[in-house]
Design a binder for these strands. Sequence first.
DNA 1: CTGCTCACGTT
RNA 2: GAGAACGUGAGCAG
Length: 410
Amino acid sequence: MERVVSRENMVAAWQQVKANAGAGGVDRKTVDATHRHLVSHWPGIAEKLVAGTYRPGAVRAVTIPKPNGGERLLGIPNVQDRLIQQGLSQVLGEVFEPKMSEHSYGFRRGRSAHDAVAAARDHVLSGKRYVVDLDLKQFFDQVDHDILMEQVKREVTDKRVLRLIGQYLRAPMVQADGRREKRQRGTPQGGPLSPLLANIYLTSLDRELEARGIAFVRYADDIQLYIGSLRAAERLLASLSQWLQRHLKLEVNADKSGRGPSDGATLLGFRLHANGEIDLAPRSLERLKDEVRAQWDARCSLPLTERPQRWREYLTGWWGYFRFATCWRQVCGLSGWIRRHQRKYFWLRWHHPRGRLRALQRLGIQGRALGQAWSRRGAWRMARHPVLHTALPNARLSRWGFGLPWHSAA
DNA sequence: CTGCTCACGTT
RNA sequence: GAGAACGUGAGCAG
């Protein structure tokens, strides 16, 4: 606990909380208001923390739409509690990080979704022709407090820390209409500590799978197993459902879970192929196209007079989308729009501090030729653009005329 | 190099 | 009105 309230740890935690610039919790204090409150009250709070008498506040319930149409229930702690949780998360992270599985990729420092997909690809390439998808029903809301605390106790002995974690887990949720709801299970989605707790909770599943010698990849609550035969896949799905129910009190979603051929399986927005190629999952591609179209219209209809105020926002986003659209016009069906707005594009490009320089130096000598030069020379750079790079990291790009090597199987 | 800001993606 | 973690890239300032 002393480590949590240490000066270095707390300033780091505060910077993180401030950088997120999130909304207030049930006390509706903003980040700024909390800062003013803390400069005078922090010593007292720290004292309570080391004495073990601190009491966390409730969390505010908010529902936000999920990308696929559903709703996600969030529990937003007060800014002050987010700060303390962040501080806890930082020191607990150091303790638990080395104990976690190599095959767990979500929420972990230095590990990305790309790593997870690459690992999955390697499993498929190594001859596992079937895949089992495990979808846990409402995972964050189903976490069992006692089981979780048992896991935490294996590495943490400080009673004050354990107590505090327990209280954060049990913090009641205040609905929009003011009703308070006690919680017996689950960890509030929205607390800085929750991602870490989720990983601690599921580490025992990782260990069980490793003990059984199963090839798998886990990204938070998204779990995929790679199996040699369909029969074995069926068996595993059944036996693991039971194991999860028994040891972690988790239900697997029978509708969304399943088993099938690994050729064409999707993971984290990507689609895997038996030959080791990776491309965008159909769903993600659709979402991407819709987004490009929407952004395109929105940015083009924004009057130029508003541009100066929103200069950077306007350009960084719009510019990227334009490049994407130019590149993918045949996919998105955007050629009409591009033709219509090309002049405006050149104009904006010219006024971008870096774009003007680049435009002169590397691409265009004059406006008319710019479009041509762009499509020829831009292809390679296009493939490195952030939007493309995160979304489309693979050999399949060669299909559209670009070669961006996805680092090959090591 | 290290501090902030601004985009995008996954859970 | 919308939280958190992680990842990537860009911009700015000493």
